[in-house]
Design a protein around this nucleic acid. Structure first.
Length: 242
DNA sequence: AGCACA
């Protein structure tokens, strides 16, 4: 049985997973500074970080030896990094670059998804229509007016608190409990620049939707503000706090 | 909040 780390209950790994990283830091700067900080524990094979909604604020540092990863966790846990304490664990799975050295690497399928994409799309579309009991073609078309016929959410909150400044990520509230990520994707992917939708399991009724840029997120917000998946829940869309 | 393989 693999040796377990006490704090995280994740087995020892060559790779450390870091989160709680300041999301304002640019990717290349982030990688450079991680390299500078972690090289002292052993040879680093690779540092990975991404800027998508799901993966921002996180990074993977792959060490040649797992012992270096262990030392890094011991010594750098909660280390203040760009004004935030790093949270470090072993990565949950083996990094590809390690698997390649092992000879255990099996490339993951990506084109398969592409082949089935048309079909998947259709299924998602049908699922959403069934769930909402309406036809998207008349509702969500780019530039078309959503089911806003009634009072937009603005009218209810006479004195809203200072909103987050415009940015590429939207914060959606007042979603009905039966809302699924697929349903939201069907709605929001119709607008150009759509990247991804994210729901938080622990917090029903809200979601984040990311676009390539703020002009595109703004178009989407204007198009879908107050959209009702069910009649009693007009969705409220604001820019996400940064 | 969030575990990837640009």
């Amino acid at each position: 049985m693999a040796e377990m780390s006490v704090s995280s209950e994740v087995p020892v790994n060559n790779t450390i997973y870091i989160n709680n990283i300041n999301e304002k830091v640019k990717l290349d700067e982030l990688k450079t500074s991680l390299k500078a900080i972690f090289s002292q524990f052993g040879h680093i094979l690779e540092i990975l970080a991404f800027k998508t909604l799901k993966h921002k604020g996180q990074a993977w540092v792959v060490f040649e030896d797992a012992s270096a990863a262990s030392r890094a966790i011991q010594k750098m846990q909660n280390f203040p990094f760009h004004d935030k304490p790093m949270r470090i664990q072993y990565a949950r799975t083996k990094s590809d670059i390690i698997a390649k050295k092992d000879g255990t690497f099996v490339p993951r399928e990506k084109k398969k998804r592409h082949e089935e994409k048309g079909k998947k799309r259709k299924e998602q579309h049908d699922a959403l229509q069934a769930a909402m009991g309406l036809n998207l073609a008349y509702n969500g078309a780019y530039g078309a007016t959503p089911q806003l016929s009634q009072i937009p959410y603005m009218a209810k909150s006479a004195v809203p608190e200072a909103p987050a400044p415009p940015n590429s990520i939207l914060f959606i509230q007042n979603l009905p409990h039966q809302t699924t990520p697929m349903m939201l994707q069907m709605l929001f992917c119709q607008y150009p620049g759509f990247k991804e939708v994210r729901m938080v399991e622990a917090k029903p009724g809200i979601a984040f939707v990311e676009y390539e840029n703020e002009a595109q997120s703004t178009q989407s917000m204007m198009g879908l503000q107050g959209f009702k998946i069910v009649p009693e829940n007009p969705m409220s869309i604001t820019y996400a706090k940064k």
